[in-house]
Amino acid sequence: MTAPADPGPPRSGSGRTSADRMADTAGTHGAAGGVATARAEQVLSRLQLLITRKLDGLLQGDYIGLLPGPGTEPGESREYRPGDDVRRMDWPVTARTTVPHTRQTVADRELETWLAIDLSASLSFGTARMLKSDLAVAAAAAVTHLSVRGGNRIGAVVGTGGGSTVRLPARPGRKEAQGLLRAVARTPIKPGRTDLGALVDMLNRPPRRRGLAVVISDFLAPPDDWGRPLRKLAVRHDVLAIEVVDPRELELPDVGVLVLADPETGALHEVYTGDAKLRARYAAGAAAQRSAIAYALRAAGAQHLRLRTDSDWLLDIVRFVAAQRHARTRGTTR
Rank of each mutant, 00 (worst) to 15 (best):
G274S: 13
L203H: 02
I242V: 05
Y295W: 09
A284T: 03
G256I: 11
I189Q: 13
G256K: 08
T273V: 03
V255A: 15
R193Y: 00
A276C: 08
K190S: 13
R208V: 12
R210G: 01
P247K: 04
A267M: 06
V259C: 13
L250H: 04
V235M: 05
A267Q: 12
D310P: 09
R210D: 03
D238T: 08
R209F: 08
A299C: 09
F219N: 03
E243D: 15
D201T: 02
A261G: 10
G266E: 05
V215P: 02
D238V: 07
D225L: 05
T309N: 06
I242K: 02
A283E: 12
V244H: 01
L212S: 02
R205A: 15
L212N: 03
D225G: 00
I189F: 00
V245P: 10
D238Q: 15
V259L: 12
L258A: 05
G227F: 01
E264N: 01
P207E: 09
G266Y: 01
V245R: 11
D225Y: 05
D310M: 03
A267W: 04
H237K: 00
R208T: 13
V259W: 05
P222L: 02
D254M: 12
Q303G: 04
A283D: 03
A221C: 00
D310L: 08
G285Y: 01
Y272S: 13
D225K: 06
A287I: 03
P229T: 03
R281Y: 07
P263W: 01
I242T: 04
P222D: 14
G266S: 03
L199T: 06
M202E: 06
W226M: 02
R298L: 08
D201K: 00
R208K: 15
V244L: 15
I293N: 09
D224S: 08
S217W: 01
A296E: 14
E251C: 06
V239Q: 08
A284S: 07
A241H: 04
E249W: 01
K277S: 13
G266C: 05
G285Q: 10
S217T: 06
R228Q: 12
L250P: 02
R279I: 04
P206D: 04
L278H: 07
R298E: 15
E251N: 09
A234F: 04
R228N: 08
L268T: 07
A280D: 11
P188S: 10
S291D: 14
D195M: 03
A198E: 05
R281H: 02
R290C: 05
G197D: 00
A234K: 06
R306F: 04
D238Y: 10
A292S: 14
A300V: 07
F219K: 00
G197E: 06
A276V: 15
V255L: 15
G285S: 12
R298G: 05
A294T: 11
A294I: 08
A241R: 00
A302T: 03
A286I: 11
V244M: 11
L220T: 09
R231S: 14
